[in-house]
Simulated assay, not measured.
Amino acid sequence: MNNFMDTLVWGNTVMELGKVLLLLALSFLVIKIFQLYILSRLRKWSALTTTTWDDFLIKQVSDSAVPILYISAVYVAITSLKLPERVEQIAYIAYLVAFAYFVLRAIGATFRRFVYTFLDTKDNSEAKRKQASGLITIVTTMIWVLGGIFIVDNLGYDATTLITGLGIGGIAIALAAQAILGDLFSYFVIFFDKPFEIGDFVVVDDKNGVIEAIGIKTTRIKTLSGEQLVCSNTDLTNSRLHNFKRMERRRIVFSLGVTYQTTHEQLKAIPGIVRQIIEGQDAIQFDRGHFSSYGDFSLNFEFVYYVLSPDYGVYMDKQQAIYLDIFKAFEERGIEFAYPTQMLFTQSTNAEVTPSKE
């Protein structure tokens, strides 16, 4: 029996292999008990709380910490044996890569969760989540790049040389892709300064439409005519942009003209008539109304009111209702609207011919 236990297998006795396998089995058993009892109880407890962060942390423990425990148990068991240096090096690299993978995945998930939790406290959170996708992609990429440098450094390579090379390469790329980097920085300006968001109605130069998507390089606008307008982020941040979604109320100025045959009493009554019509509409605030000028063919009035809604459809409905009521009121009172006309006065004269003398 002793001779069998002392038998060498890959440079290790059967006794040593048995101890390692027993240690590995016990480690797996402890981890499994931790999963079945402790984690399951924590899940039940977190389901009773109002916050969701505890559910997230438990999920990260289950998805990242538990695999790391299994991998660590296997690695400790392997390093307990007498193995060739090449095998030990391969085992170390595999363990380091697996460990870094699960840690970096947990860090990325935590950052994503933090951003989404912050955005959920804001209005229109679903649109803001879409807008933040570019930022999350950039930060996640940076996390994985740093993780790669960490792995290279722990493998014994000079990370300083790698970082220096990346820096020189980064300068070359920056010079070759200035426009792309400009759009990238403009994306950060849009994300943090928020001149517009997804769903806002904007006017840029002679183009207008609703913001449909905000990407790392471009922003997509759904125009009123139906097509998709793609603009670079730099163009938008450098332009004078009108954001009608931020408008709390809409100021309306309109004029109307009546004929010169309108009587003084009718002219005096017009501001009151129109004011009464405007104030009779819901969500409308009357500002002023005056007899403003004498025109070439009309007596002109100017009126100002506010629509207490930024919605363009509401504005058009209210304006139509006001115009129809004005037309009806003027028709009932015999007040005529002016339109371009010319009045020609003619005068006939009798020409007297005096005979000439010779």
Results as ranks from 00 to 15, higher is better:
I278Q: 13
D296G: 13
V258Y: 09
I58Q: 08
K207G: 03
E358Y: 12
A73C: 02
T234E: 00
I252S: 01
M247V: 14
L344D: 09
G167W: 14
L36F: 07
V314A: 05
T354W: 03
I71A: 05
A338P: 02
Y312C: 00
E265N: 09
K222E: 04
M15R: 15
L166H: 06
M1G: 11
F301K: 09
A269P: 00
D200R: 02
I68A: 10
L69E: 06
L8H: 02
F301C: 09
S72K: 01
G18Y: 02
F286E: 02
F297R: 04
G199E: 00
D54W: 13
D123M: 01
N238Y: 03
L22Y: 03
N243V: 07
L29V: 12
L81I: 10
A338M: 03
C231F: 15
I138N: 04
Q320W: 05
L155F: 09
K217L: 15
S62L: 04
L8I: 10
R43H: 15
A73I: 04
E332N: 09
L236T: 00
D6C: 03
L26F: 08
G11C: 01
D205N: 07
G272Q: 03
L166M: 15
D153R: 14
W53L: 09
L21A: 11
A213K: 13
F34T: 12
K318W: 00
F301Y: 15
N238A: 12
